[in-house]
Design a binder for these strands. Structure first.
Lengths: 368, 368
DNA sequence: TCAATCTGATGATGCGCATTATTAGCAACT
DNA sequence: AGTTGCTAATAATGCGCATCATCAGATTGA
């Protein structure tokens, strides 16, 4: 094995050609009237095989090419552990996809963290350049940053639905609306009528979508929507008891585990007296915790799909592709904006409504 | 915000100096008789602040500088999930350290995976170059690869103790020996005498160290070492019962959960009849699994410490440092080879030995 | 006054690659 | 013979940065 890196020049020397020729062979050539004979091509390929040459990503990138490196930027600080549990599965999916694509992953851990959120500042932005494109993960706020992303034409994909910017932002999201709708349907099918929603605070897309789904599903069944929104888990439990809910749907960030404990402490067994469906995975899985019913967010798949999409964006944006196809972006809207199904989870926290307290006069809204 | 990347040349123009001057200011200057006046320095720094300039890592790297990127190479394929659960915590620690150091992390997911192991081939090796240094994680075999690492003088740190190569390999490991010794001590203090060891197969360092610890601790207490090494968990359980062990220590890869189940199926309660201590964390944590006693491997801390060490190695190897200090490596042996304590875990699988079957004539070895 | 020394910089070069512009060689036609 | 047209390549350039060698001007010494 050689001490020094093997460069295209080394390969060229061995094959008896120029460095440029090696580069052309590697990139499938034909940029501008350049032709390489099949014989020369083979000689170069042989030399590459013998020397074990691999391109220096830094040089490739500097020269305006692709380095086969994709970036991952997480808006949320990955610490403390809470976010870690939540973001971990995305990373798993991303890694898996990266393996299959044969690319390396660059984690932008250097970006400054302020108030527990990582900022994509001008400075941080400059560092993205090493990667061919970048995945954006987590909630974020700054509109200016977004605009900059779009302006610079740097390839990127969001993980999580982005409603804003009229479809200009590529993303891979989860169908929180549909998932929530199905949970209500299931509860109704089990005979529930007084179904409450716990935790509607928050302006993030998942929360909005869950509320959306709850509202439209309840309306579809002609039922009254009832929200419980209290700071305290104990107070929430009391409210649930007082309102005589037979079932509630809960977003995972609202401490479902503690909520169920509080309910049982008040003599309401889960699910015998109250069904509790979880709209997503628990954020703080706990040892010996409940086996929740509800739906799950396909986080691994989201991560993987996002990376595949990014990879396609990158190749489409590359000069070579642009030259060959003549168009900048060959991706359809459906490819750029993917919404993945959130599969139902059958745990042990859903049960048929107890017949003795099912129908209530005030449960049906006026059909008009 | 500017469309194009801001370069040192831009900054130089704004400050009314040359690009080289900017570079010198950024790197603390004084490479070879170069002097920058304080006034000029300030002007450059102002320009940097105003423009929000950040170095292009690719260019830095290509020019032989540091890119503030550290690599992570995992020998084991991160999939399937089993290894994921095991390696996750290391990554958490590494990420944490990266945040604090202000560096980005490059995950070498592109390296080819053969037989479930990732190979650091000549080609893969070339790609390491983008990073200033690299962390090596997991079991590996190829001596040639190791030699190459040492030859090229590329900064790297192993996670996990490396006995070979006479102290030339920097690593951050865990004190499996000491941890195991303490477990035996604890069991002896609880009155146990017939203490078995489950799972001594394997030539990896942790296994060797555990066996080492078990052997020396048992000898220290004048007790007979007894190994159980069977393919089948059920057979192992039978053997434990037959041998009338009052306690066993188990390496986590030996399915302790299933083993305990099998023991109870044979009427031996854990820990009342048999204490089971785990020499590390369970590899496949299971919902509602046992709360194990034993010791834990400080994986997060190992990851973090390893990255800090790597960071120091990198700065020490940089041309600038070499120039300033005159020596290539300023790190002591203790810094290059760290062994971290594995703290005891008090779970629910250890109990005092039942007095009715404690002393056995054949349990004490001949003191001579 | 002219060389010697010191201060404070700048110009030039190369890292390894992609890409554009250019050219050498040869056959075909006028 | 001279021009055109084509193939198969090469030379040259620049990406953004670190670094080495060089240099202009000011100060000092004799």
């Amino acid at each position: 094995m050689p001490r020094r890196r093997i460069t295209q020049t080394d390969v060229a020397a061995m094959a008896g050609v120029s460095q440029a020729t090696v580069s052309f062979v590697l990139n499938g050539s034909t940029p501008a009237g350049v032709r390489i004979s099949e014989e020369t091509r083979q000689r170069v390929l042989d030399a590459i095989r013998i020397t074990g040459y691999t391109a220096n990503p830094a040089a490739q990138r500097l020269a305006g090419g692709l380095a086969q490196i994709l970036g991952v930027f997480t808006y949320e600080a990955t610490f403390p552990r809470a976010s870690r549990d939540f973001y971990g599965p995305f990373l798993v999916g991303i890694e898996h996809a990266a393996e299959r694509l044969g690319v390396d992953l660059l984690l932008f851990t250097s970006a400054p963290v302020a108030d527990g959120r990582r900022r994509l500042t001008r400075e941080g932005w400059q560092r993205l350049g090493v990667a061919d494109g970048c995945l954006l993960l987590g909630q974020h706020e700054d509109r200016g940053e977004l605009q900059h992303l779009l302006d610079t034409n740097y390839p990127f994909v969001f993980i999580g639905k982005r409603g804003s910017d009229g479809g200009r932002l590529p993303y891979v999201g989860a169908d929180y609306v549909g998932g929530t709708v199905r949970q209500i349907d299931r509860l109704v099918a089990l005979g529930h009528r007084r179904i409450g929603y716990v935790g509607m605070r928050g302006t993030d897309q998942p929360t909005l979508d869950r509320v959306d789904g709850y509202r439209s599903a309840m309306k579809g069944h002609g039922l009254t929507t009832r929200f419980v929104e209290l700071d305290d888990v104990a107070a929430t439990a009391t409210e649930i008891v007082d309102q005589r809910f037979t079932a509630v749907v809960v977003a995972p960030e609202n401490h479902p585990e503690e909520l169920a404990d509080e309910l049982e402490r008040r003599g309401r067994r889960v699910p015998d007296d109250v069904s509790v469906l979880l709209l997503g995975q628990p954020h703080h899985p706990r040892r010996g915790g409940r086996n929740w019913s509800g739906f799950s967010v396909p986080r691994e798949e989201m991560g993987a799909r996002a990376l595949y999409l990014l990879s396609r964006l990158v190749s489409d944006d590359s000069p070579q592709r642009a030259r060959e196809t003549g168009r900048t972006c060959a991706l359809t809207d459906a490819e750029l904006h993917q919404i993945l199904v959130c599969p139902d989870v059958d745990g042990g926290t859903a049960a048929p409504a107890r017949t003795d307290d099912t129908p209530q006069t005030d449960d049906r809204t006026d059909p008009a």
